[in-house]
């Protein structure tokens, strides 16, 4: 198990691959983008990235804005 900080909240995960970690959440079908430790991660790189404890993931979705 690793400890991940997802959108500012600590949580544990048995998935260490970013793609699998994201799939394990209920995001399927949602339009989202990801940053890992403040660096943008393009969708095509999700499968290549292995997570480690302490990693900070930002998972963002479209929202109203001015």
């Amino acid at each position: 198990m690793i400890e991940i900080i997802l959108n500012g909240t600590k949580q544990t995960s048995s998935e260490t691959n970013l793609s699998l970690f994201l799939s394990s959440r209920e995001n399927q079908g949602a339009n989202f983008a990801v940053a890992l430790n403040e660096e943008f991660v393009p969708k095509c790189n999700y499968q290549k990235i292995e997570l480690k404890s302490g990693d900070r993931i930002e998972l963002v979705v479209p929202m109203q804005g001015g």
């Binding site: 995001n27 989202f32 963002v60 479209p62 929202m63 804005g65």
Partner: peptide
């Protein structure tokens, strides 16, 4: 139209409804 992005809230539909409307 201007839009933004925000952290996904797991209890909401993840901005999907808003984005579909736009």
């Amino acid at each position: 139209v201007t839009v933004s992005l925000r952290r996904q809230n797991p209890t909401e539909s993840g901005g999907k409804d808003f984005w579909k409307m736009i």
